[in-house]
Design a binder for these strands. Structure first.
Length: 953
RNA sequence: GGGCGCGUGGUGGAACGGUAGACACAGCGGGCUUAAACCCUGCGGCCUCUGGCGUGAGGGUUCGACUCCCUCCGCGCCCACCA
């Protein structure tokens, strides 16, 4: 194993086999080469579990940016690698690999900035990431790594799109079904047609429309963040607080455009229910629950006076219907135009009319002002409630009273029905609005907090608590005297029987906007005919390749022109856009869809492709999916056994992928109901950052400390602290650490810094501690001058043996719980013990030690293992097992407390009875109990003795 | 405003309700060395020090509380006019 060149590479006059950064680098390169050559971590395409079972282990895959990795990125990868190596050594068949999420706006922007095409920059970035990650010695199956931009990958992304497009949601069966079954359901009358006419009376075109109306992927006109300056719509996360684009700082305008949508709302209840079965952090589950935002309530129809129409509202408080003294519709509500009369029907105060001569004028003026505001402006806190009367009245269905209808932007068009009944006495927002406009506040629930339940003149806020219903008796219905809960039920019951309302459920979750006017994404497998109708391409025509084009920039338009239309870059690929295909009725000319899919698309399903990356006939072979991800017991959802990544994906990625997974499950492609059975959020690596006096970040690596202050060159700078990354200019490259200390030291350091789920500050000068640890291990087992092992084939001393088994016991427990920081502490303690003995280490201690070290420092451990005389890799060696007989010693030391304070320790035989322990303890603290009676003695076996004295008089 | 977390030495952190501060970084001392580094080894919460006080503050439960319960303070994250 030792070579002449090794010696030439060691530092200065250090012994030739001292474990230094240089020696580590050499060892690491050698073992990485050997693992690759021998295919050590390649997982066969079979369905054979290990003795302990199978384990599908996964990281959230990286987006390969142009900056390369910093030491924060691989934190999770190192953790999963350690866990995977441990699992392998404890008999599990482990599937672990890493792919690349490579489509999306950052790659495209980077390409534009560097003047190269996205494909070549993306490929270069992936190569760089692969090289940087390879240096860390991760035991990934290299044959399963995929990139979302691979044709062999995105062809299946497109295939899944077609599956979703060709499906509808059967509410009765609560699952997706193929669209072909919808026609049958329409025909049989099981599902009503959009306008209620029988299926047989519909024309061909109407039938196609009826099918399109229920698809899970559909086109609709929706409000979007339109950024003419960038020529694309943007996701909400790409819009800054002041309504401009994150990239380029162009205005972002609200505009209605026809876009592809995904009907994720159909799955709202199932996405909610299955959270119960997932082993996920409670915080992430809560975020998803809030995002879905299910609330139970009622829909109520308020007839509009003077028209045949009714205004439908959603409320969670049907019990307060008698307290509804006015109504509010959102400015965008479709009924606004029809309900506005020509003139004010009655004299109205200035606060209602805004001083306008006619309702139309008032409403128009208010609406145009609301439209000019950005979404952020509208939602700004502490903005006084404002609005105008529409001039219309509706009828409260319970009391028969006339209630005025207002337009106000505190009601959102996108939630519920976009209209509310306002109960100012019991809703804070309505209360604020009523006080501003001078509207009646009528209590209908008796307040129990001391305020006057009947006279609201002294109220400073709405009463939202429970209480007895009052003022709620009418000719049709009376609920006076009931508590809020009962009153809700009674009201819904009455409304349903009277036909004026019904119990309903509302969600905050919206359908998912799935189009982007960008180049660098998956093309849709869709073409349009002359009439503009969308047609899916058949599976045989996949993949629809992303064409190479000369100018992949988005169309640059007047940044302030909200009326402009997007010009997707693909539209300029005219040869590609115009296509002649035969969709069953002979070859015809079509135009391709020129939008592309959002960045989430590939990450929605990549876990499935890891299972069967080379399969060109199926997304994944069913038996492989069932083996790796299938449910394992009654009620189990199935899914990846452990998914590790940052909490920033708590909602979007993790909700979208759950949605796709459920559709594919419903359509019979997957046995698992959920993609990720267990989720773990690792913390971030943070670091100090420095700003100059203009507040601009300076490179943290070049800042020096002098006299308690920080300097960048001659300029004093201010220290701050935050997540490591490009924006704070505080990145540290893993390459730099690998060069100085080696990858094993980096791995140990990152894991040792703290619990995996907690963010921790990077400190380069602290890394040396882990190098010293490895050096001591090395020196305890090898001769630094020759590299030969110094271990002896003798039995270890009893103390060392006991510590070894205690360490094994503890390390196993820490590993199972992903507590790698404390597992490493245990190994350090054992090694410190070996160091302090200053004697050769017994082989029976050295070998288990090396095996326990190997998940953390695999290269050094492999080298030690080989030098101890083993030929094969230790990756599949059984992990040491503690011998219970060697864990305990002959005696036990008990701390003895008197009145809660430790006063002595006593040593007793391990098999001493509680009585004996008590006697020894009392003898040990005799000096402390003098003159006082012992009231009670608590003996906790193996732990502690607690003596309680009688109270001093 | 709502929800979820978290507060322990100079620093990162450890502690099934059972001797608070393991382990490590930084610091200080001893040994080795011509010397320095490395290495080995020791010290280290605070105080009026045979004892007392200490895990953000205050209370409670318990033989015993960093840990469980209540109130408050501070910090972080997420959502936020969702009817």
């Amino acid at each position: 194993m030792a070579t002449e060149t090794e010696q030439a590479r060691t530092d200065g006059d250090a012994p030739p086999y001292r474990y230094t950064g240089a020696l580590a680098a050499e060892i690491e390169a050698r073992w990485q080469g050997r693992w690759a050559a021998e295919g050590t971590f390649v997982v066969p395409r079979t369905t054979e579990p290990g003795p302990a079972g199978k384990f599908f282990l996964m990281d959230m895959f990286p987006y390969p940016s142009g900056e390369g990795l910093h030491v924060g990125h691989p934190l999770g990868y190192i953790a999963t690698d350690i866990f995977g190596r441990y699992l392998r050594m404890t008999g599990w068949r482990v599937l672990h690999t890493l792919g690349y999420d490579a489509y999306g706006l950052p790659a495209e922007q980077y390409a534009i900035e560097t003047g190269t095409d996205p494909r070549s920059t993306t490929e270069a970035n992936i190569r760089r990431y692969r090289a940087q990650i390879a240096r860390l010695g991760l035991a990934h199956d290299p044959t399963r790594s995929v990139a979302t931009t691979d044709e062999s990958f995105y062809r299946w992304t497109q295939w899944i799109f077609l599956q979703i497009y060709n499906a509808w949601y059967d509410e009765r069966g609560q699952r997706a079904r193929p669209i072909t079954e919808l026609a049958a359901a329409y025909e049989a009358g099981g599902v009503p047609t959009p306008d209620g006419r029988p299926w047989s009376e519909l024309s061909e075109r109407e039938r196609a429309d009826a099918l399109d109306a229920r698809r899970l992927a559909y086109r609709a006109r929706v409000p979007v963040n339109w950024c003419p300056g960038l020529g694309t719509v943007l996701a909400n996360e790409e819009v800054t607080a002041d309504g401009r684009s994150e990239r380029g700082n162009f205005p972002v305008l609200r505009r209605e455009l026809t876009q592809w949508m995904m009907r994720i709302t159909a799955y709202a209840d199932r996405l909610l229910e299955d959270l119960e079965h997932l082993d996920w952090p409670e915080s992430v589950k809560t975020m998803q629950r809030n995002w879905i935002g299910r609330s139970e309530g009622a829909s109520i129809d308020f007839p509009l006076r003077g028209t045949g129409a009714a205004l439908e509202v959603f409320t969670t408080r049907p019990d307060t219907l008698f307290g509804a003294t006015y109504m509010v519709v959102a400015p965008e509500h479709p009924l606004v135009d029809t309900l506005v009369p020509d003139a004010w029907p009655a004299p109205a105060p200035q606060s209602w009319t805004g001083g306008h001569a006619t309702p139309l004028e008032a409403v128009d003026e208010y609406r145009s002002r609301a439209a000019a505001m950005t979404e952020r402006d509208r939602q700004a806190e502490a903005r006084p409630k404002a609005g105008v009367w529409t001039g219309a009245y509706a009828t409260n269905p319970a009391s028969g009273e006339a209630v005025p209808v207002f337009v106000a932007d505190y009601v959102l068009a996108g939630y519920g029905t976009g209209a509310i009944m306002a109960v100012p006495a019991h809703d804070q927002r309505d209360f604020d609005f009523a006080r501003t406009l001078g509207l009646e506040i009528r209590p209908v629930v008796a307040a129990t907090d001391g305020r006057d339940p009947y006279d609201t003149s002294g109220w400073t806020d709405a009463y939202v608590g429970d209480g007895e219903v009052i003022n709620s008796a009418g000719e049709a219905v009376s609920i006076d005297g009931k508590r809020v809960g009962d009153a809700k039920r009674a009201m819904v019951e009455w409304m349903e029987s009277a036909g004026v309302g019904r119990g309903t459920v509302s969600y905050k979750l919206r359908d998912w906007l799935f189009s982007r006017q960008r180049y660098w994404g998956e093309p849709f497998p869709i073409v349009f005919d002359d009439s503009g109708r969308a047609h899916p391409l058949p599976e045989s025509m996949l993949p629809v390749r992303l064409p190479d084009i000369d100018d992949y920039r988005p169309g640059a338009l007047d940044p302030d022109d909200a009326g402009s239309d997007p010009e997707p870059p693909l539209a300029r690929a005219t040869d590609w856009v115009e296509v002649t295909v035969d969709l069953g009725d002979g070859p015809r000319r079509y135009r391709r869809e020129t939008d592309t899919m959002p960045q989430w698309a590939g990450s929605c399903w990549y876990e499935l492709r890891y299972l069967d990356p080379g399969n060109d006939r199926e997304l994944v072979a069913p038996q492989l999916e069932e083996f790796w991800m299938g449910p394992q017991r009654e009620g189990d959802t199935g899914g990846v056994d452990l998914y590790v990544g940052g909490v920033e994906h708590a909602v979007l990625h993790l909700l979208y992928s759950r949605f796709w997974h459920k559709v594919l499950h419903d359509l019979g492609h997957l046995s698992s109901r959920e993609p990720f059975r267990r989720l773990f959020n690792q913390g971030y690596i943070q670091a100090y950052a420095y700003t100059d006096r203009r507040g601009v970040h300076v490179p943290a690596g070049e800042v020096v400390e002098r006299g308690g202050r920080y300097w960048y060159g001659d300029e004093p700078v201010t220290r701050s602290y935050g997540k490591m990354g490009k924006s704070l200019k505080n990145s540290v490259s893993p390459d730099e650490i690998c060069n100085r200390y080696g990858a094993d030291t980096l791995r140990l350091y990152e894991m040792y810094m703290g619990p995996l789920d907690v963010s921790r500050p990077w400190e380069t000068k602290a890394v040396v501690g882990q190098l010293r640890f490895l050096q001591r291990v090395w020196r305890n087992l090898l001769d630094e001058a020759t590299g030969s092992p110094t271990v002896v084939d003798e039995a270890p001393d009893p103390g060392t043996e006991r510590l070894l088994h205690a360490t094994i016991d503890a390390v196993r427990a820490e590993m199972e719980a992903l507590r790698f920081n404390t597992a490493i502490s245990r190994l350090i303690e054992l090694n410190n013990h070996l160091t302090a003995r200053r004697a050769p280490v017994a082989r029976s201690v050295a070998e288990p030690f090396v095996l326990m070290l190997s998940p953390f420092a695999p290269h050094a451990a492999e080298e030690l293992w080989a030098r101890l005389g083993h030929d094969a890799t230790l990756a599949y060696e059984p992990f040491p097992q503690a011998d219970p007989g060697k864990l305990s010693s002959a005696t036990v030391t008990y701390p003895v407390q008197v009145d809660g304070k430790v006063r002595a320790t006593v040593e007793v035989p391990a098999d001493a009875s509680a009585t004996d322990v008590e006697a020894a303890a009392l003898a040990g603290v005799a000096g402390w109990t003098e003159g006082r009676a012992v009231a009670k003695v608590v003996v906790v076996p193996g732990r502690i003795v607690s003596v309680v004295l009688t109270k001093r008089a």
